[in-house]
Design a binder for these strands. Sequence first.
DNA 1: GCCTTGACTTGAACATTGTGCAAGTAGCGA
DNA 2: TCGCTACTTGCACAATGTTCAAGTCAAGGC
Lengths: 232, 232
Amino acid sequence: MPRDTLTRDQIVQTAIELLDADGLEGLNMRSLGKRLDSAATAVYWHVKSKDNLVVLAGDQVWDEIELPDPAAVGWRAAATSMATDLYAMLTRHPWLVQALASHLFHGPAKARHDDHSLAVYETAGFAGAEADQAAATVFMFVLGNALGESATAALTRRLSRDGGDAEGVIRDTMARATEVAMRFPRLRARIEAAPVADYGAAPDNSFAFGLRAILDGLEARLAARRVGRDAR
Amino acid sequence: MPRDTLTRDQIVQTAIELLDADGLEGLNMRSLGKRLDSAATAVYWHVKSKDNLVVLAGDQVWDEIELPDPAAVGWRAAATSMATDLYAMLTRHPWLVQALASHLFHGPAKARHDDHSLAVYETAGFAGAEADQAAATVFMFVLGNALGESATAALTRRLSRDGGDAEGVIRDTMARATEVAMRFPRLRARIEAAPVADYGAAPDNSFAFGLRAILDGLEARLAARRVGRDAR
DNA sequence: GCCTTGACTTGAACATTGTGCAAGTAGCGA
DNA sequence: TCGCTACTTGCACAATGTTCAAGTCAAGGC
């Protein structure tokens, strides 16, 4: 019987679980070791550093995104599906957004996603650099949305970790935020219109609204180009 | 002569300088203390914790953004100006993006910005929740773009801190990234078209392209609504 | 002019965490 | 059985956030 030995995949998998549960600063080598039934430093045989591990984990999760066939469902449906899937993935793994802000990711799983994203916008009719820019536009929008999500996830994690008076802290945070907002006319109006504000998230349906608007804008650009070409 | 004593503003100001220079993980209480000519722990009299300090610093910088008058320059120019200014600000302070991913910000300076942003989109013709959603769309897009910027800033900082073979590491990183990308047809085509790729940033002009597309999309929505109303 | 009070400052600690290193151990081929 | 390679372990150190008791300075009342 072979000694059961750690594998890199196993480590990355466990790291993802830990990251999902405790966030980026919740992951530490000692608890990772405990979860793997090994010494903390055993991990260093398989992985260069904690940063390296996070990058590995942060590539892995891109494989969770489905790649719809734009030829089958239409480019717009495909783009919407990919954006929505990506948003969901980033919401499942809020630590990834934090990691994206401090590390460069160039792993194969992300490359697979990026390549397909390009395919979708090329199917739509964008060529060369424009496909790139169109894809980047939607991508950046999704990233921004996920960033807000990541912050609230971090807050609730901090609260549940510090235990105790989570409700109180939230109420306090909201009260403080509301007090500041009330000094500005439009923010005040918004609060008075919807008094049950969440603590700082994006407005309802903002993601769907924004995505539609962006795709509309891209579609208009395509149409304009087509007209230009037809008139030639 | 009064003893010269620390002030909260002075601390926040110095923290911002340090954050700009060394990034979020480069800021530590001891070097902050040294820069302030005081003991590291003196700061704790004025500020609850490091997190708290970062939130304070992270609100301050929103005041750097100019607020154009949409009635004077037109809503679209105003929106473009605010988005561009915000992007520039986030690029000047890349740590803020990281902070945004892990903390909620509800300070007065950000509120001032948000309120004016709403004003711009209300001037454009969006009412109530729609103004909110339109503003959020552009905001999220800018945030996403800044996130990429933040990651490359963090990399170059890490490189210059670790000193030594920065060029080598960059070349190495790029080589590795390229090697992965070459396995995917569209990424490969992109690389072959523009062999002097930067290490993972957004495509050229992507920000301007995307912003235009988004504003086009929003404008179309306004026009559609206006037509609907006129037809009534 | 002294003294009390409260606003700050300091230095010494402690806990947590990433990581290097030398020594150990298990399995496998010879 | 020997030894080699692939891993694992425990110890240790350095960096860093934070606490706390003790100090120090300035201003106001007497």
